[in-house]
Design a binder for these strands. Structure first.
Lengths: 348, 348
DNA sequence: GTTTAGCACTCGAGAGGAGAGAGTGCTAAA
DNA sequence: TTTAGCACTCTCTCCTCTCGAGTGCTAAAC
């Protein structure tokens, strides 16, 4: 696209003004920008050109201009300056990143909350697990005669436990035997490899302890399955209503309903590299998002796992600021959670 | 309050009609009720009386009547018939209660989602922990030379674990010593009882293993603190917008914002017995809830812990149906999670 | 050739008013 | 005590009108 420098200036001015005010921008308003010493009439001509190029739109004849999705795209690709976080902002983000070393779930929940608060848009996070998880290690701890804690550790270094109650006593040798069997025959297996045949064989081997074995294996498969699935979080939904574009309930409601449906969110775009991605209006495939923009960053949880954190809002948004914040935050999360960091942070 | 049988009939008719239509109810509409063979004029007289008693209201002169909060209260206390769940409804609820035996958190999250879907109102759940938690048992499992899994079990039978990495090697005797020290000197202590003095004494006792000890204790205190705090979940927020009373954004927005603020929710009423409680309009203390009703049931998680599950909606709601569903659901949750049930369900 | 001033024109937002309809309260009759 | 009749009230909806912002075009100025 070949665009004169002046047109670019005007386009940027329109977009930035519209981002700030949510009102269509007229030629007069633009002409007041000190850097552009041109009359409204000239600007009108230029704007007509920009409209013909598909970068601006008129809500109706003889209203001001607003940026079209294509205009935003051009802005994001070519005109947007790298926004730098203010000291205060980095401070806020850093404070948020000093999350307690809790379970991953909580870190993610907290992260969405913080990013939503910071950007003033609803935010969502999806953490995607690796496709095949196996158990690396089993431990059986006897608490009381018929009470055990089973601890399993996956090959992704996730440790989970559960309290089990048995209906009958077991001897110490039986427990020992079971422990060994678990750590020899059931480690390194994917979900599919735990077959009824295998269980049958194990039954022969452990005898009376089979009841406990099935409970342990049931738990292990639950953990594996859980690790392999997505976890979705949304925060700050209600903030959407603060924006004039969602003053109209007819418009706001379907979007809110869509964002409330966590299963739907997992279909949102998943960029695979670590850049911040921006999806503007119709660039989103989902119908409910046609009039909204999604800004999403991806972070590294380590061990084959990637997470996404993003925000959803009207196409009129300050992409520069938002993108910078998400980038900084995702980067921080990667450092906090990723392979480089302290493994213990990934417990749960 | 002394009210004639006929007045009660009329009040009930007004309330039930208003619940169904959300429109002020006129005398003509009521007179059409087959069971009440009285003319509109008579009904007008009666309604004027009911209004004088504060049970009905007129949005403006010469509109129909709508129930006042007091009217709803009277309805709930004296007129409401026990709603019986349909077979289909119990089926739905039962299916929902067959939740996976996952962590408590998840069960609660899932429960709010189900109840919100069923009632079509936003729902919330709060699980309150006991006020003093102590650690009953510590286990240290060595995974690799410098990697340990620490497993702690609270006196409320909650088991949690974490993966720890050490900067230096430890001998087997040191680990053994630490393990014993933990299980003798640190069990049964509340958060306040873990003093710097105690830590200092422990330092003398374990020597080099002190680094590991602090990590373990840090984790234990984190677990205790977590167990003692509330967990809040909200689901189905956007459903609020489906009701005509929230068509007006000015009205909907503050409420949505309030419900999004999880910390605010923990201030919601906490009934202490196991009945379903109903708080109508101004009976709620929170300003944002003045125009809404809260229906809440409490369920037993066992071991000193109680949870709440409730819904929030316009004062015009079908209290009978909602209360019945919540009651059934809370009862089911109690059976699933409570002292009577399988303790293993409470793992996490 | 480009830029600017002038001007008629367009279109939505918002104010104001008229009419319809639902429902009331009061009065008087049954 | 109940009911019918009737004047009255008040909101809701639709319509019209005006206002103003902003445009596109034309012609003059640079």
């Amino acid at each position: 696209m070949n665009i004169s420098e002046r047109k670019k200036r005007i386009l940027r001015a329109v977009i930035e003004d519209y981002i700030a005010t949510a009102e269509p921008v007229g030629s007069k308003t633009i002409s007041k920008h000190a850097e552009l010493n041109i009359s409204p009439a000239t600007i009108r001509n230029e704007m007509a050109d920009l409209e013909a190029m598909g970068l601006l739109e008129q809500p109706y004849t003889s209203a001001g201009r607003i940026p079209s999705p294509g205009g935003y795209r051009f802005y994001v690709n070519e005109l947007m300056e790298q926004h730098r976080l203010s000291l205060q902002e980095t401070e806020h983000l850093n404070a948020a990143l000093r999350l307690k070393t809790q379970e991953l779930d909580r870190v993610i929940t907290e992260a969405t909350r913080v990013i939503s608060k910071l950007t003033k848009y609803p935010s969502y996070a999806i953490s995607a697990g690796p496709s095949h998880v196996t158990i690396r290690r089993f431990d059986l701890l006897q608490v009381e005669q018929q009470t055990f804690i089973v601890v399993v550790m996956t090959d992704t270094n996730i440790v989970k436990n559960k309290l089990l109650r048995l209906p009958a006593d077991l001897s110490e040798t039986q427990i020992h035997l079971l422990n060994r069997l678990l750590n020899t025959s059931f480690t390194g297996l994917t979900l599919e490899e735990i077959t009824p045949d295998l269980m049958e064989m194990a039954k022969q081997a452990v005898g009376e302890a089979y009841a406990l074995l099935t409970m342990v294996i049931a738990f292990a498969t639950e953990v594996m399955r859980e690790q392999e699935t997505y976890a979705v979080h949304v925060s700050g939904l209600a903030r959407l209503l603060e924006y004039p574009e969602y003053r109209d309930l007819e418009r706001a409601q379907p979007l809110l309903a869509y964002l409330s449906e966590e299963s739907a969110l997992s279909a949102l775009p998943k960029p695979d590299d670590s850049d911040v991605k921006i999806y503007i209006g119709p660039e989103n495939v989902e119908g409910a998002l046609q009039d909204t923009s999604v800004v999403v960053a991806s972070y590294d949880i380590g061990e084959n796992m990637r997470g996404l954190i993003g925000i959803v809002g009207p196409t009129r948004m300050d992409y520069a600021k938002i993108a910078a914040r998400l980038y900084y935050f995702a980067d921080g999360l990667t450092k906090l959670l990723g392979s480089g960091g302290d493994q213990t942070k990934r417990k749960k």
